[in-house]
Structures are given as C-alpha cells and as structure tokens.
Design a protein around this nucleic acid. Structure first.
Length: 428
RNA sequence: GGUGGAGUGGCCGAGUGGCUGAAGGCGCUCCCCUGCUAAGGGAGUAAUGGGUUUAUAGCCUGUUCGAGAGUUCGAAUCUCUCCUCCACCGCCA
C-alpha cells in the first residue's frame, strides 16, 4: 500500500509512473472522491467536536444538579445529523481505501521500463552450460526411468500438477532443502523458523496477496459473510514477513534475517496449458525462503546481499544461471525492484526462473504496521521488507537432474550434496 | 469440547459512565549533582488520520484502552458477538 497522503498529493505523477507497471489509475475518480472525502471529513469532525464539547457541558450541568432533559433532546437530534454525515464519509473513505489497496508499488528508478518479460535485462551470467556428447533427456524422462518421479500416482491421489517422489530422488529433494537451509543459517546469518502453513486473512492482506490475488490461493473454507477461512501459504514469505506485523523494533534490532523451508500451495488459476509437463509448475512445491527486515536506508543494499545469498546456492551446486532485473511491467505487485535468478535447463535449452528476490520497501510494512524506533528519536518509522527464494527446491531438483545427467541415465550427485545423501555419489 | 479468569501506551500496571488520552513504575531523552563507575535530584516522553502550512515546525481538530456491533447526550468503564491468552477438566499425535 502506498502512503495515502503521497498518493493524494501526487495523483497525476503517480498515475504516470503506474502506467509503467501496467496499472491504470482513474485520476478523475480519485480526484473526485478525494474532494468529497475532504469536505465530508471536515464536516464530520466539526460535528463530532461540538458533540464532544456539548456532552462535556451536559456532564457538568448534571453534576450541578441542573435539569438536562431538554439538552438531551437537543443532542438526540444533533446525533441524527452527525450520523448521516458520518455514514456518507465512511462510504467515500471505503472506496478510496479499496482503490489504494489495489495500487501496486512504484518501481525504483533503477528498474528498466517495460511491459513484459521480454524487456527484462540480463545483469550477469555465471557458469558455462555443459556440452553434452549425447542427447540430453529432460527431468521427466530421467526421473521416471530411475523410478524416482511418479506422476501417475500423483494424478491418482490428487490430480495434475502434483508429484510423488521416491527413493534416492525423494532423498535428494530433501537433501537440497537441508543444504540450502544450512547454508543460509550457518553462513549467511539467517535464523531458521518453523512456521504455520495455514494463515489468516490479516496475514494475507499484510503481504498483499489479498485483496487482489485471492484466486491464486487454496482456502480451507469457502468464503462466508464473516470472511474467508484460513488459506494455505503460497510462499513462506507470508508467515515470515508477518512476523513483523504490529511490531515496534529498536533500531539496534535491525536487520532481522529469517528463513524457513516450507511447502507452497498455488492454485495456478489461469495457467492452464503452461508448463504442464514435469515439475516446473506444481500446485504444491517446496521452497526455502529468505526474508529481511531492514532500516529503510539500507534496503537496496540488502537486496544485493540477499540476491547474493540465493546465487551462492546455485554456485555451490555448480549450476549455471543468469541474473535478470525485472522490468516495471513484469514485477510483482508489491516490489520496488526484483532480481530473478534463472537456472540453465539443458533439455529446454534455456534459462528458467528458480528464484525471485525483491525489495518491497515500506509497501508491506505500511499494511503490517511494522515499525522501528530510530535510536534517540521520537517518531517510529516503517521498516523495509525484502524477500527472496533461496531457492525453489523442486525446480532446483529439476536443474540438478538435467545438468548432472550422464549418458547412461544415471545422475551424478553434486559434491556439496554428497554428505546429505549418505555419501552416495550417483543415483541410478 | 466444558468451566472459570484475563486482554489498557515501547514494557509492567492502576482505573466500573463525564474533570481519564488514561495514575504509578520501568525504559528512554535532556539537564543538575557526584573528580571515572555506581547511586541521587529535576524536567520531558503514546500512536495515528484530517485541516492550516514550504514544513514529518507550530496551531486547530478527529480517532484509538484485543476486534466488531450496540446502549447513551457522553463508553477503557454497561450489553452482545468474535478472537487471543491463562488455569482446571475432557480428548489427542
């Protein structure tokens, strides 16, 4: 959520910037609502003020023992007038809030302008895609041949976009998550958290999945008039970032760096036909997520650091990747700046997203009321939040299978994973 | 699931219809004193919205005592619903 005052004062300028984000702000509507809001608010508050003052007088009169029946009758009529104005004011205000909650964050000046992923800019490349002396197989063929990926059983048990893993492949999947978590906690300074996989609507609003992206979620209960039931997390960003909700940190507490390994659940509504083969796009997948709460002046430096932490996983696994800065049109709703890491997939002969690292600025913090008190200072300030995948575990498994495949169909185990695989160096 | 108790400012904790945005304490900030330190004395210290404004300065004003609804001229205080926590009972990985 953008600062409402900022939005109001800079409607036109903001609307222009939002075009780059693919969002059309109805300036005329906002200006009109704003004018209504102002006059209704002043009127309401003036009436409330005089009600308060006169109620006080009644109290004094009553204490004196005066007869207050006529005063009360008069105030009764007054309340009717006040409530009428107040109701109008609240209606206008609700409309404004609804618009404000649907406006995406503004992009940082360093973010390239563009409409879609074709205008993302490659920042760097690491590693060289291996040359294979044989025809490479994709992870589906490899996994099925090794009896490690069982799509048929998953369809039977749940449906499409689910997976059953078996044996050494299931173990490697587990090993990858363990390795990532250990790397971030032991080398990168993150504290490991175990968090709920079901979250309430407040949390989803705080991290901006609600109100706009409810369709992407799996809900435990159908919508009711009282609100919606709990939802399965689409990413650990939700529980992790909501740790900061309603918090008042000391400046010395920052930065706070937390990480968690969780499954993620996404309905993938609207992605019919895309990535239907294999593990790339699943309703349920594991991810190790990194989240940082930082001083507002340090968030862009923190983004570089956090992205580096995700990159380190790929480097240690010796998986070639490239780093891309997302253009304004391809960024997520809440981000000010996002780097995607894309891993090389030989079977697809291309790079595919495996991590997304964003500086959210104060956009979530404003909704979360996540603040800190600058040392020696008076006013609390909003913290900045960042999040990034480090990494998507399922896609990492895909990358390992495809990049480490041998001509005979076996899979070499990346060196750093061997200890996590009980010393096993090859699968198959 | 049952019964009982409780949710107040950065923290602890008073407060059962008006003079309470909220005593007291802790913490924090500034000043004084003590030749460092420890201890002591004084003052200040909630958040947030709006109006005015070059201003997150000042001034005016609204709101907020778990959340929401209600009663009332007036609610931290009364009523209802919900949430959370604590205790005991029941059940259970």
């Amino acid at each position: 959520m953008l600062d409402s005052k900022f939005l109001r004062v800079n409607v036109r300028a903001t609307a222009e910037k939002l075009i780059a984000r693919g969002y059309t702000l109805d300036v005329a509507l906002v200006v009109d609502l704003e004018a209504q809001r102002k006059s209704l608010q002043v009127k309401t508050e003036t009436l409330q003020g005089s009600r308060n003052a006169r109620s006080k007088e009644i109290g004094i009169a009553a204490k004196r023992g005066d007869d207050i029946t006529s005063l009360r009758a008069e105030m009764n009529k007054f309340s009717v007038e006040l409530n009428a104005v107040k109701t109008k004011f609240e209606a206008v205000n609700a409309q404004i809030k609804e618009i404000a909650a649907s406006v995406p964050n503004l992009a940082h000046e360093s973010v390239p302008i563009g409409s879609d992923e074709d205008q993302n800019i490659e920042v760097s490349k690491w590693g060289n895609p291996k040359k294979f002396a044989f025809n490479v197989k994709d992870h589906v063929d490899l996994g099925e041949a090794l009896d490690g990926l069982d799509f048929k059983s998953a369809v039977k048990i749940s449906g499409s976009r689910f997976i059953v893993m078996k044996g050494q492949i299931a173990k490697m999947h587990r090993a990858l998550a363990q390795y990532m978590l250990n790397l971030h906690t032991e080398e990168h300074g993150y504290t490991e958290l175990y968090v709920p996989y079901l979250v309430n609507a407040e949390s989803l609003f705080g991290t901006t999945q609600l109100p706009k992206f409810g369709d992407d979620l799996f809900n435990t209960n159908p919508a009711t008039q009282e609100g919606i039931g709990m939802s399965l997390i689409p990413t650990a960003e939700v529980p992790l970032t909501n740790m900061a909700r309603d918090m008042m940190y000391d400046e010395a507490d920052l930065p706070i760096k937390i990480t968690a390994h969780t499954p993620c659940f996404r309905s993938e509504a609207g992605s019919y036909g895309r990535d239907t083969r294999g593990l790339i796009r699943q309703h349920q997948f594991d991810k190790v997520e990194m989240v940082q709460f930082v001083h507002p002046e340090k968030s862009f430096a923190a983004l570089e650091e956090l992205t580096g932490h995700a990159e380190q996983v790929l480097k240690n696994l010796e998986l070639p990747y490239r780093k891309v800065i997302l253009c304004t049109g391809d960024m997520g709703f809440a981000a000010t700046k996002t780097y995607d890491l894309e891993v090389w997939l030989p079977a697809q002969n291309t790079y595919r997203e495996i991590s997304s690292c964003s500086n959210v600025g104060d956009f979530q913090a404003r909704r979360l009321k996540a603040r800190f008190r600058p040392t020696g200072a008076k006013k609390p300030e909003l913290i900045h939040t960042l999040n990034g995948s480090g990494l998507a575990v399922g896609r990492t498994l895909v990358a390992v299978l495809e990049n480490y495949q041998l001509e005979d169909g076996r899979i070499e185990v990346p060196a750093v994973l061997v200890p996590y695989m009980g010393g096993v160096t090859h699968i198959g």
